[in-house]
């Protein structure tokens, strides 16, 4: 019985921390004024925010004698997919030139997002000339 009470309080603390982080993520999304800086707030703070909410769900389920592992799967898939969506949003920002232009890469010609067949055709013959 006491274990149940402890688990309930622990879940409450997790819920508070998780929702605080989610709130900070939303504040960051509203506060920053550049697409790239905006991207930081939800990708970082989202992971621990959702993680804490899921931990609370696991604690409550375990305390009620019905342990569940689905939350671990949700966390694993979230951690695997969040970087991919962030990467694509960043690519769109670079493609639309809605952010500061990135510096050119040291060894290669350009960044893959900026690499288009047109650019290759326009610069192809010129790059062959000395």
């Amino acid at each position: 019985m006491t274990l149940q009470i402890v688990a309930t309080y622990a879940a409450a603390v997790c819920l508070l921390i998780g929702s605080a982080f989610v709130l900070i993520g939303v504040i960051g999304l509203l506060k920053f004024n550049d697409p790239m800086t905006r991207l930081h707030a939800p990708t970082k703070v989202g992971t621990i925010g959702i993680g804490m909410l899921l931990l609370a769900a696991m604690l409550v389920a375990a305390a009620e004698g019905d342990p569940s592992a689905h939350e671990l799967l949700i966390m694993a898939f979230l951690f695997a997919t969040a970087p991919v969506s962030a990467h694509f949003i960043a690519k769109v920002a670079i493609h639309q030139q809605s952010c500061e232009a990135p510096p050119p890469p040291p060894r290669d010609d350009t960044w893959s997002t900026l690499n288009s067949p047109d650019r290759k055709m326009a610069e192809g013959p010129a790059s062959g000339a000395p």
């Binding site: 951690f79 960043a90 670079i94 893959s112």
Partner: peptide, 23 residues
């Protein structure tokens, strides 16, 4: 790239066309 996006204030944004550097 995934690790960089998940950790301290950094987001991996792009790869160079031949894959020699990460933005």
């Amino acid at each position: 790239a995934g690790t960089i996006t998940l950790t301290p204030g950094t987001v991996s944004a792009d790869l160079s066309d031949e894959g020699h550097s990460l933005l």
